[in-house]
Design a protein around this nucleic acid. Structure first.
Lengths: 139, 139
DNA sequence: TTATATGCAAATGATTTGCGTAGTC
DNA sequence: GACTACGCAAATCATTTGCATATAA
């Protein structure tokens, strides 16, 4: 609940934002911490978490709640799907925007009022596919 | 990794299985623990977790890895989608099986080898809709 | 008998929070 | 100067694991 008052532009907030927008990867909070730490060595993990939360609340970044794992963060705020590699765990964008027909599937089938859906693909990334069966390309 | 040896039919394993199949809800590990505890008061949470893991490995139940929250467990093993209510957090089945066209979206768009997808709907359940905006119907 | 399971408690990993100080507006 | 944000460390929450004992086969 950080919905009151003024939001200040701090060094750490700005650097987190910058790094997140520069990256095409979708880092976890801890990865953001490690990256930002190179520029601001005294930043704390708690600050990173707090800022990621605030930035995503304000719609400046996107919080990805993926099944079963840590949250990841995305500098791109447009709604789009993601693919995760089962081998190395990396997450990438899928160029398609929301598939409109998907929500329709639920019409008449369910008595829920559907607000949105979350779709996530699982597969093997080209790097791991090439690397054979034990590719550990961490991203 | 419980893929070796023999799997024994213990009291606790059987009761967990029974309760999970009896319920249409999709309880979390802790909820399973509370439910089973009524019949086996001395069971431990660790045992519940271990058994849920083993049962899902053997395909006897389904582990649902939903975005952002605890895992939930389902006595129904057929592949199907779920809807979650944002108000009360309950999770229910959607009668539709996997939508075949979904994986096709990724063909040609991505260089990933798509294995499967995970689709989850978010909406408001009929109970909460009726109850107005503050319905807290926990399931 | 003998390996697999259990109960208990401590360990882990991700994320959150309280508190006193520092920095932005 | 007032109030938000930070750094640090401790707290939480979900889940896992080590170990000595109990139990199914």
């Amino acid at each position: 609940m950080a919905a009151k008052g003024q939001v200040r532009t701090t060094q750490q907030r700005r650097v987190i934002m910058e790094e997140l927008c520069r990256l095409k990867s979708h880092p976890t909070a801890n990865e953001v911490y490690e990256i930002v730490r190179k520029r601001l060595p005294r930043i704390s993990l708690g600050t990173v978490y707090r800022n990621l939360e605030i930035l995503s609340e304000r719609g400046m970044i996107q919080k990805l709640e993926m099944a079963g794992t840590q949250k990841r963060f995305d500098g791109i705020t447009e709604n789009h799907y993601h693919v995760r590699c089962i081998m190395c765990g990396c997450v990438e964008d899928v160029s398609s925007g929301p598939i409109p027909t998907i929500n329709k599937v639920l019409n008449g089938v369910s008595d829920y009022q559907i607000l949105w859906h979350r779709l996530e693909f699982v597969g093997i990334c080209p790097r791991c596919r090439e690397a054979g069966t034990q590719g550990i390309t961490s991203t």
